[in-house]
């Protein structure tokens, strides 16, 4: 028993000393390959995935982002939506929730292809030696609401379409303005989304807005880490259902010195991660669960990621020192 415990402790110590950044890079790369090219290998994980595995990447995708079927379902004519179709909406949502609670927002930080692309753009900027931008706190406070607004619109507009208030050319409204629609199919050589649809005024406006947002996305992601995630309605939806999730980010406020190291490395500029010493479940609505904060925390056990209550990555002094030494010698 004791030997088992010490062996478990040895494994834990090894995990806690992991070079999280490179582990994450390879995992993200694998997930990207799976979700962007998996379709070529007949992988199909369904259409209820809590990440941007864009359906417009028709050939390569291994799954479909839940937002597309959700908007489709909600844009059905009301008599149908509020009768038999409501069952499919509910079962669809439940499937989505099941996928989600497995990884919580870890889907964003480790799996989402659009998130990975943003990290690659960030890496490119870093290599070019251009510094990144940050929001001021007042900007942050305002902008952090945008994703909820987008989520509300993403539900209300399809309902309006189903009710006959809006044109079908607006469907699916979020997908039309989502940069993933243009960026992800590009990776399988499909550039057909880079077009303006002149078939109607609505379609023209929507596609023009979409392509403008893609232009902004490329610039934004270049100067700002995880630029789009800040506005992502999927992220908002995640947060609303994150309570039963298995993967959790926990903080022991008593051990925190508020040194701000976690805040320093946070791609999403979440200040609470450093300053909030009362909340145990510290995952904020903007969090992408990249767990960089855990890796950059020098306080033993102050931050940890748990899966179903079992700690899987914990902040340790030894891990911190190992990572910082690596950074000092060959950090990028």
């Amino acid at each position: 028993m004791k030997q088992n415990n010490s062996r478990l402790q040895a494994v834990r110590d090894a995990v806690n000393r992991v070079d999280l950044n490179s582990f994450r890079f390879w995992l993200q790369l694998a997930a990207f390959a799976l979700f962007v090219y998996g379709g070529y290998f007949a992988i199909d994980l369904g259409s209820r995935l809590p990440l941007f595995s864009c359906a417009y990447n028709d050939e390569g995708r291994a799954a479909i982002c839940y937002l597309l079927p959700l908007q489709h379902q909600l844009s059905q004519p009301w008599p149908r939506l509020f009768s038999i179709a409501s069952i499919t909406v509910i079962t669809g949502f439940l499937t989505f929730v099941l996928w989600f609670i497995f990884l919580n927002k870890g889907w964003c930080g480790y799996v989402c292809p659009l998130g990975t692309i943003q990290d690659w753009i960030t890496a490119l900027r870093r290599r070019l030696g251009i510094r990144y931008s940050r929001y001021s706190q007042s900007q942050f406070a305002q902008l952090t609401r945008v994703k909820y607004l987008l989520l509300a619109l993403m539900i209300l507009i399809p309902l309006g379409i189903g009710g006959g208030f809006f044109s079908h050319d607006m469907s699916p409204p979020f997908c039309l303005i989502c940069p993933a629609r243009m960026v992800l199919p590009m990776f399988t050589g499909d550039v057909s989304q880079f077009t303006i649809d002149f078939s109607s005024k609505t379609a023209m406006i929507m596609t023009a807005v979409g392509i403008s947002i893609t232009g902004l996305f490329l610039v934004g992601a270049f100067v700002k880490k995880r630029f789009f995630c800040f506005f992502c309605p999927m992220s908002a939806l995640h947060y609303l259902i994150s309570k039963p999730a298995l993967l959790k980010l926990k903080k022991d406020g008593n051990k925190c010195t508020r040194c701000g190291d976690c805040y320093r490395v946070c791609d999403m500029e979440i200040k609470e991660i450093a300053d909030d010493v009362k909340t145990v479940n510290i995952m904020a609505d903007d969090c992408i669960m990249c767990l960089k904060c855990v890796a950059s925390c020098p306080e033993e056990g102050a931050l940890k990621a748990t899966f179903a209550g079992i700690p899987i990555l914990e902040s340790t002094e030894a891990g911190f020192i190992k990572r910082i030494n690596k950074g000092c010698s060959d950090g990028k």
């Binding site: 030696g129 510094r131 990144y132 990028k332």
Partner: peptide, 25 residues
């Protein structure tokens, strides 16, 4: 006691990280 964490090992980020470490904790 308090140690500095750096996200991007570039002069700009390192200097700001150092600044944070000297003020925040």
């Amino acid at each position: 006691y308090d140690m500095t964490a750096v996200d991007e090992w570039r002069v700009n980020d390192m200097v700001d990280s150092l600044a944070d470490k000297y003020l925040k904790p």
